[in-house]
Design a protein around this nucleic acid. Sequence first.
RNA 1: CGGGGCGUGGCGCAGUCUGGUAGCGCACUUGAAUGGGGUUCAAGGGGUCGGAGGUUCAAAUCCUCUCGCCCCGACCA
Length: 512
Amino acid sequence: MSKQQQPKKAISPTREEDYPEWYQQVIKASDLAEKSPVRGCMVIKPWGYSLWENIVDALDAMFKASGVKNAYFPLFIPLSFLEKEAEHVEGFAKECAVVTHHRLEKGPEGRLVPAGPLTEPLVVRPTSETIIGDSFSKWINSYRDLPILINQWANVVRWEMRTRVFLRTSEFLWQEGHTAHATEEEALARTRLMLEVYAELAEKHLAIPVIKGRKTPAERFPGAVDTLCVEAMMQDRRALQTGTSHFLGQNFARASSIRFQDADEQERYAWTTSWGASTRLIGGLIMTHGDDNGIVLPPRIAPAHVVLLPIVRNAEESALVMPYVDSLADLLKKKSYGGRPIEVEIDTRDIGGARGWEWIKKGIPLRVEIGPRDIAAESVFVGRRDRDHREKVSVKRARFVAELTDILDSIQNTLFERALAFQKTHSTMIDEKKSFYDYFTPIDKEKPEIHGGFAFSYWCGDAACETAIKEELGVTIRCIPLAGVPEHDSGPGGCICCARPSPQRVIFAKAY
RNA sequence: CGGGGCGUGGCGCAGUCUGGUAGCGCACUUGAAUGGGGUUCAAGGGGUCGGAGGUUCAAAUCCUCUCGCCCCGACCA
């Protein structure tokens, strides 16, 4: 009987015990972010922000490689702009923060009160189609001005009722791309291209397997003609959209008067697209790879790849170990992985075993312990975050340096394969209504266990069926998969709800 | 906006029914021991108990008002 029973896992509760609470605890333990005094807003701490910066760098490079240029537009949008596109108003009006005054004055009891009302209220951007559209209308006169390919990295505000750090916050960071084209085909191609970019970011960098698809009219971006998305499965088997790309047709061009004179001398409306990904990706990362000891970061976007943990008992050992550690750090930093120099942390804090655990919880890919014994053997003691925390191996120092990038590749691949296997395991084709309902109904209704997954089932295309299922089960159509998903390309069948003929299966799931 | 709950050192909480002037765990600081692991012992710093008013010799505790937050629901590309 140990007087103090050590928890077997660093995070309590475990995923199995209480997934939403596990998520909160992991964020706290990993030092990524914390809640702020402002309701629904988060403080992103250095470890979390560095992670975001790496995501930004990866995406930004892909955007630029596809010809997109960055620009910046105002935080404030005149109220009248938002009113220009009818569906857009519907979709966003309810969740907007509105600026109505431009000054503060001393009020009674020394309190500051808003003064100087604005003639036209300003909306804090929930998205920027309208204000960017206004610029586009001025920039575009001729078909020779097209295409225009613009992206902005920005913060946006959506006054959500219920918030969760990274997944749904009142303010979040994202990028929004906006393009204008002379032809429908070209705009459609761009919509598809950017979806590919998001899929590549998710799979190659974040090691999150995704399914590419199209949203149903009910789930579409307000004002869009077509919304494409990439959907991932979290470890509670719920779906999370990790990127979205919209074909806006000429809707926003009409609303903002984005017109050009074509080669045939006709005046035409431009075809526009918009596409975005946000700090929500970090939530997806946590819920895809995290375990009961904290987050697990894919090496390609980890803020640091390796932490060196000197094992010293006294000044003499320190004098022996530290030069060895510093020289190893120098060697490692000269290498690079995924186009980025290897980032090395050296943690010399004398806080006992808590030191190693902190890095496990923070999800750093590799922990390297170095003590007198390793130096005598010219080796290092290495622990991988994708393996059990007790599984640590002694490796010759030279070999570790030489094989570092292979090890990181191995971790990156393991995470992706593991997540892909999980997604496959919890994806099923369901053709019977009862099975479908069983699949999405927890055994214990009081305290629902993790259940369900991706159900590939037929849907007739009727919004009434979609709504019925949403209301009865809380399950929605995440997407109509694009070609190439085997479960989708399985011929026609009968709608899971009404049994009417349906050409294809769609993905039903509970969603974030 | 409806239903429920909670505001006590940085965090998590006890104390409130039965008023007597604040306590526990973690974290933090210092010292010592330990040393391939969330170690141990000792000493220590930090709170006008969300705010205002009232009752009382005396209020974290009782009464009134008020502010804020959380959870469930509605809401959510």
